[in-house]
Design a protein around this nucleic acid. Sequence first.
DNA 1: AGATGATAAATTGTATGCAAATTTTCTAAC
DNA 2: GTTAGAAAATTTGCATACAATTTATCATCT
Lengths: 235, 235
Amino acid sequence: MEYAPPQAATILNAKIDEEVESLHDGILSKLRDFIVEGHLRPGDRVPERQLCESLGVSRTPLREALKVLAAEGLIELLPNRGARIREFTPDDVREFFEMLAGMESTAGRLACERITEAAIGEIEALHYQMYGHYMRRELPEYFRLNQLIHERIVAAAGNHALETYYHGLTARMRRLRYSANTIKRDRWGQAMREHEQILDALRRRDGRELAEILHEHLIHKWNATCEPLGTSEVE
Amino acid sequence: MEYAPPQAATILNAKIDEEVESLHDGILSKLRDFIVEGHLRPGDRVPERQLCESLGVSRTPLREALKVLAAEGLIELLPNRGARIREFTPDDVREFFEMLAGMESTAGRLACERITEAAIGEIEALHYQMYGHYMRRELPEYFRLNQLIHERIVAAAGNHALETYYHGLTARMRRLRYSANTIKRDRWGQAMREHEQILDALRRRDGRELAEILHEHLIHKWNATCEPLGTSEVE
DNA sequence: AGATGATAAATTGTATGCAAATTTTCTAAC
DNA sequence: GTTAGAAAATTTGCATACAATTTATCATCT
């Protein structure tokens, strides 16, 4: 799975000859993906030498990438004991969701001021498409559209820093999502209703309300992942 | 000026033998401070060799630190051309303020659910102290207390990830603040009124409203820094 | 047998070295 | 005098090397 390349934002940010995507960042992305995809379990040591061979580079650039990943919070660097995949405590997960809620809420507020009618239309289209998947109980497709809608709103906020941090968060949470790709029937209905409200607030460009709904929506999502799975979940 | 060391949060996060502050991160902090303090002008090249000597380390750990700083957005890494101090466009500044507004807004909402009565009392005390400085037109002291109140609210949100990112943002903005340590008389009054509302919403633990006010408050602050300075500014 | 301590192997953190690229300096032409 | 071009000198990016520390292995003792 790949990110959508940050099209417009990158072009806007790139000066005449700056911001060229260094071939060296490739190591970083590969390592990040490697960890996020779950090839290394939380608590595991990160085998420098082994990764060097499989990536075909020496330790120097790899260690630079590890430092960055540590700064991003994906791994821990223990003095003289190397890197370990960070374990996420329930509190960490709560903090992630709260941040995500905050980011989306902020994005929603800003998007109401800046989004074009065309972009609203596109989100509407995605919404109805998602609704179709909901009616047909097509969970993976529903999740995909859901994610896409949220990404569109964040993109419409017109804030590159926000978008970058948001994508970083969702990347870190991807591993968590693997285990949480399930939803209760009644929660699903509620989520769908919330999405109706989201779209409605966006149409009316009511930033205050959209911020509120998005925050609630994400916190509900978190609550759902916390509850022990009951008897009525789908899939 | 120093940060209040993150007391409780660090203790909570530190496992039995993990998270020891590596002596190596010292380079990172020193470099970050060196840049934030403004010893290097935007657009300047970062002299690797020179910094190595003045820090007393070789290029390897220094370059690791540079990679992290680049990930944080403080410097740019141009392929085969080394590091440059990042220049902030007006759009970058807008994005920073919007992020700050979003963070504080989110923090406020969370703080309303979690803050202790004691902590509210402390913020009240700071508020009235700040009000005194406002009445006596003591601008630097006012700014200090102002900053302190906002930090307290963020801390009261009980979200370490948010706090970390918030401090990163304010650090990056410190350089901008140097030039913006001025305020118009009428804006000062408005800011003071907004702070009254902030305290009021916090007392009532009305997260929705506090989030709204904080967002507005920060956006106003940004507008103030953008407007060309008129005739009635203080200092 | 299980625990304890010593030795060996592996791993980490940092310094140094070298090829490729860039920037600077110097020279020569217009 | 200014500009274009070539050679020298930095500078960058990466690989390797080496000391310090940690981890693993193994022999010894209770």
